[in-house]
Structures are given as structure tokens and as C-alpha cells.
Amino acid sequence: MNPAIPDILTSLDFVLIEFTLEFQEPFDLDEARMLRLRRDLRSAALLTLGEDESFSALFDPPLAEDPVALKRYQRPGPSFVLRPDPRRCGYYDSGDCLQMTVLFWGRGIQFIRHFAQTMQTLGKSGLNRGEGCYDLLQVDARELSGNAICLWSGGGWPERFAPPVASVAWWLDSLAVLDSRAVLEFVTPARLLSAGRPLFRPTFANLFPFILRRVSSMVHAHCGGADIVPDPRVLQEIAQGVEVLSNDLLWRDWRTLESEKGAQEIGGVSGRLELCGAGLAEIGWLLRLGSLLHLGKGAAYGAGCYRLDS
């Protein structure tokens, strides 16, 4: 295993689940609709689950009880992450199918069935504000090799799913080490706020603290209170030494928010960073985990998704 990967990651797991939806009416899936499932999905979950443990574990994980952890970690996000594919945007006719991939992290794995039932309920009201009604046809677990294992294809729900889990450490060790060069590219816009103000053209030095906070808080909240980075200052110092060869990150508006005060454009950062430097080998594992968990506001619902190439 890459010596830079912390040993604690050998005990952390995630699962990729693919939901197959068959539209019952024409639906135009654009980027704005793809990234705005939060309200409708939560409403469907409340109808399906009520406000029980499964709802809280998936959508509203509690704050840390330890005052030190409460101060150190940001408010934990949901234990799932929607993995959007902009290439799947477009017009869908009645009878067309859409595959939606969702990552379940740590403790969230045991609540996959509850999420699947929520997806079935959501189909009756539609993906976005009453539009895009669908039937849930199938639920598959997607192995890292690409193989799909069917967990459900209609009928009654099993008591619980037993999907093949992926060890975070094994996944990291299967990827190329980011030893001297990396390209970080946002697949969906990332809305990053600092002191309440958007970062319109962040540098890598601006981005790294967001990655560090997102990963460490998701590990602590959903993986048994694990402390993945005992001293964040060490990694921050390493990140400061990473050189940026090119930066074409730009702010892009992707939706309009209507309110009593008028229309407001909502956007996020898109584009790519080209990085180099020996420090990449030491912080590469953290950048990789950030690519699983996304960044910024709405990260669990598909925003702030980025990919890394070496």
C-alpha cells in the first residue's frame, strides 16, 4: 500500500449503487434539474421513512457531542453522494431510462434499502417540482471493476441489502499515485463560500482547506468518529508547496433563484487546475477522497464533483 495512505483507511468502506429509472412522461433533464434534487428527495424520504433513525442517518446526521470535535469539524453532510454525469442530461421520452449513481459512505451503507424505497416514492411525484415521474426498475451495486450486481428488480423489498463494499484503502491503492503532476477538473460547479462570500476564482491554496474539511468531517461523522488527520497543519503546509501550472477556474451561473426580492443567479466554480510538485504524492490520497465526496454547498446532491487525472 502507498505509505502516504493512513492506516485508518483500511477500515473505511463505500458502495456505489446504480438506480435505473424509467420515465412515465417526457422530461427534459438539464444541469439545473440534475443538481436540484435536495428538496424533492427529502420530501419523498419523509413520506417513506418518517423522521426515524434511517432518515437522520441518511439526510441529517447529528452534530458531534464532543465539544472539541464540534469545533474542529464542519456540520456533517448526508451519508450519500449523488454522482452526476452531465453526459446523461437531455430530453427523455416516456419509456426512456436513466441510470443514476449514488455513493453510500461508511454508516450510510446499512441504509441503502431505505434510500431505494425513497427513490421509488420520488418516482410518483417526479424528479423536479412535479415533473419527471418515473418507475424504479432496478437497483444494482456497481463493483469497482465495472461489474453490476442486481440487488432488486421489482416486487417486495428485502430486509436489507448486502452489496459488495469497497475498501477506501484498496480503492486508493488501485489508482495511480499523484507523484509529480495532476489535473483537477470540476465536472459540476462548486459553490464555495469563505466568510459568507463566494470564491469566484479560487487557487489551489483556496481549494485545499475545503477538501480537507469535507473529507475529515465525512469520515468522523459516518465512520465511527475516526480522526483521519490528527494534525491538519502538516497537510496544509504540504499543500502550500504544490505548484499551479495553470488555473482556468471560473465562476459560472447555472440556475436562477426566484424570490420576493427578485431573481438571483446561483452559480459555482467550473474549469480545471494543472498541478505539479513532490507534495502531490503526500496529499494525493486526500484529493482522491475529495473526488468521491465532492465540495461545497449541495455536495451530497451532485454539486462540486471533480475528477483527478495524473
Rank of each mutant, 00 (worst) to 15 (best):
D140W: 00
D231F: 02
T10C: 08
R83H: 06
F104G: 14
W254F: 12
A69C: 06
F23P: 03
Q99G: 08
A190T: 07
P163F: 03
R36V: 11
S180I: 14
L70H: 10
S153G: 15
V102G: 06
M119K: 08
D52K: 11
G106N: 14
Q99A: 10
R307I: 10
V15S: 12
G130Q: 11
H222Q: 01
D30L: 10
Y91M: 09
E31C: 11
T118M: 05
P84E: 03
G271F: 02
R191L: 15
I112W: 13
T121L: 09
G132E: 03
L178T: 05
L193M: 13
W105S: 06
E31K: 07
P76T: 02
R42P: 15
F55N: 08
S174C: 15
S125K: 13
L136I: 00
I8Q: 01
D248L: 04
P230E: 03
P26H: 02
G146C: 12
L37P: 15
T188W: 08
V244R: 11
G155S: 06
F204M: 08
L192N: 13
L199K: 01
I5P: 06
V177K: 09
S291A: 02
S56C: 14
W251Y: 07
R181I: 14
V229I: 10
H114R: 01
S94D: 00
N128M: 03
S259V: 02
R142Q: 15
A169Y: 06
Q110L: 15
I5D: 07
G130T: 04
G302C: 05
E237F: 02
N2L: 08
Q74S: 10
R201G: 13
R33P: 06
D179C: 14
Q117A: 09
E131M: 01
E31D: 07
V229R: 07
I238Y: 11
H294N: 12
W170T: 15
F27S: 08
L184R: 08
G225F: 06
D227T: 13
Y92C: 00
M34C: 09
V219I: 11
E18H: 00
R142V: 12
L257P: 03
D309Q: 05
Y301C: 05
F104R: 04
V219N: 07
L144K: 02
V187E: 14
A299T: 03
Q74L: 12
A195G: 02
Q117E: 13
R113W: 12
W171E: 15
L273V: 00
V168H: 04
I211R: 00
L295E: 07
L29N: 10
Y91C: 04
R33V: 13
F210W: 03
T188D: 13
L295V: 10
W251A: 04
T118Q: 03
R307N: 06
E51G: 10
L245P: 00
P62M: 03
E51I: 14
E243M: 10
A205C: 04
Q236W: 07
R252D: 14
